[in-house]
Design a protein around this nucleic acid. Structure first.
Lengths: 337, 337
DNA sequence: TTGTAGGCGTTATCAC
DNA sequence: GTGATAACGCCTACAA
């Protein structure tokens, strides 16, 4: 780094104001008492010098940082973006600041681990993990020492508190809708648990409920959103399939695009459902039939939970499941014949 | 906070490994030399105790944090979400971590100032400001001491480096497209500079270019996305208007929704254009005619710029303007008659 | 009300 | 190769 002017410290301010550094400290912490005139002099000197409290030094002695660390898998995704915003809002409400870490976009486990450790190094007082990838065992490593909450995925690890949308109920509810529409043969784009701890259970729930309803299920192995177009021929190869259930809105939209390219009418020939119901894709212009997750509530409750863990002695880990809601759109309709 | 087990320090590790704390420090910094067997003992003891480096303590003596602070206005918005992801990626490439702050969603100036100060308190080495709201004067306050880059808005303050998409060229390019389509009377939803430092210049550029092209412009005063529906009657009140240029994709989509509700065909009766071209709204399902901003590049260059400022002695502030690109969609067509 | 002194966990500079 | 020791900027008794 170039040798820029060193940041002013309380000592500089003290000297400028002609007092001792303890007085300056008291002025900025609000602890202890300072004379009115003295306080003014200190404040003036601080403003003059452009003094800003050094949070790292303060953290050392206070042994507190008033900071919660939030790890989100990918801020560019509407789901995580909204959760993040809600958390930020809620944390500042509680008087905490949030520092965020994300994987660097390549979604590798090692990177996510590293990002989480970074947060711990930063001495966050609590941790919110918001990733469908990182296994509970990794999270539990830190949970023993730092209050930790897993948000947005159905985590039931005994040592870790969690807040999530009920994926079973969501998958089943959406499946019921599709069954109600009268479909008899439905493709479900499923993901292995290793790929996504959120999408795997919800697609499993979809398939399960469909079968319970007497609907024949064609399981299609999905992956990243960009791989969706490749699935079209595979789906079309199964005669009689009149609906496709995708693991997320992003997947569903990509599927609709690919179907349009392939000249397949939706929902005419093929009904399509998504999952998430958050962000711009909720637009009626697309009219996606989906399941809405209560993102804002997930974020808010997650932060409330960590803060609760912070303030209270020994709150046992608990799991909170939030209900989502069916969004009836135009992309799923009764089968043609 | 409940009295949880104190985090282990190098002293604990040193004791467990039977060495002095200096040795432990060397093991974790990689500076200086340690015997192979000693190193192993230290590593084992650290793992056993669950030792994690205390970044705040390290920052104190090293006077470095290897941290860049990023302030984004609203992570829930596709534009900021993508920029954020790009920055994160780029920063980790340079060996820096990113701490993020956002306003708490209410978009008040005081909050944004506070968030920025928080970043400074955290001793970030560089600052990236990504908000269409915060005035340059506020940014300049910190820029004097901390390398600062403004990203994503056309900032030409002499003391602050900036990276942005050329709003003039973008607005003009999009306007040219609309004029080329043959529209003679066009409504532009404009925003005052006080509301958005990005949208104001781009809509101004749209109007300017339209006029240069001999197109009659109807200026409509816009605001937040949610206020867009209220604009429909106003726009319809102007006879002969065959196209509307919105300040962002979010605005445009909301407008299209409102038009659909009002039974106005788009682009049949009214063509609509957006701006940004990022995120899920790029879907061909909507086919929005818009101007694509190079978000990833903006994020990457912004981080490169701060890091450059960090590493080099005295780089003068500079402004980098990136070109966007016209996205021809289906929501803008030649006027009917 | 104000000042002094000690220490938070770490790194860096010395001796050994 | 290893171990003392002095900072780093701040807070907090405690003394004045």
């Amino acid at each position: 780094m170039s040798d820029r002017a060193r940041n002013p410290t309380i000592i500089d301010v003290a000297r400028a104001a002609g007092v001792s550094k303890s007085v300056v400290s008291r002025v900025f912490t609000g602890q202890g008492s300072v004379g009115t005139r003295t306080r003014e002099r200190v404040l003036a000197a601080a403003a003059e010098l452009g003094y800003v409290v050094n949070a790292t030094a303060r953290a050392m002695v206070a042994r507190r940082t008033y900071t919660v660390g939030v790890f989100v898998r990918d801020a560019a995704t509407p789901f995580y973006g909204h959760v993040l915003t809600a958390m930020q809002e809620r944390a500042s409400h509680h008087g905490y600041r949030v520092v965020t870490a994300t994987g660097s976009g390549r979604f590798e486990l090692a990177e996510e681990r590293h990002a989480l450790e970074t947060l711990v190094q930063l001495q966050v007082e609590g941790l919110v993990v918001c990733s469908g990838l990182l296994p509970a065992s990794d999270v539990a490593t830190f949970a023993a020492r730092i209050p930790t909450v897993v948000a947005g995925r159905p985590e039931t690890h005994a040592d870790v508190t969690s807040v999530f949308c009920d994926e079973d109920a969501g998958g089943a509810g959406l499946a019921d809708h599709v069954a109600d529409l009268g479909h008899h043969r439905v493709a479900v784009i499923g993901l292995p648990p290793g790929r996504s701890l959120t999408m795997a259970p919800r697609t499993a729930a979809m398939a399960r409920r469909l079968r319970e309803r007497g609907v024949e299920v064609v399981e299609v192995a999905g992956g990243l959103v960009d791989e969706v177009p490749r699935l079209v021929p595979e789906i079309r190869a199964h005669p009689g399939v009149t609906a496709v259930m995708a693991p997320s809105d992003l997947h569903a939209v990509r599927l609709l695009e690919a179907l349009a390219v392939a000249g397949v009418a939706a929902p005419g020939e093929l009904s399509v459902t998504g999952y998430d119901g958050v962000g711009p894709l909720r637009t009626p212009l697309i009219g996606l039939t989906t399941w809405r997750q209560p993102v804002a509530e997930i974020g808010a409750h997650a932060v409330d939970a960590v803060v609760g863990l912070l303030d209270t002695d020994t709150v046992p880990p608990h799991h909170r499941s939030l209900a989502g809601e069916l969004v009836v759109g135009r992309t799923a309709a009764p089968p043609r014949r």
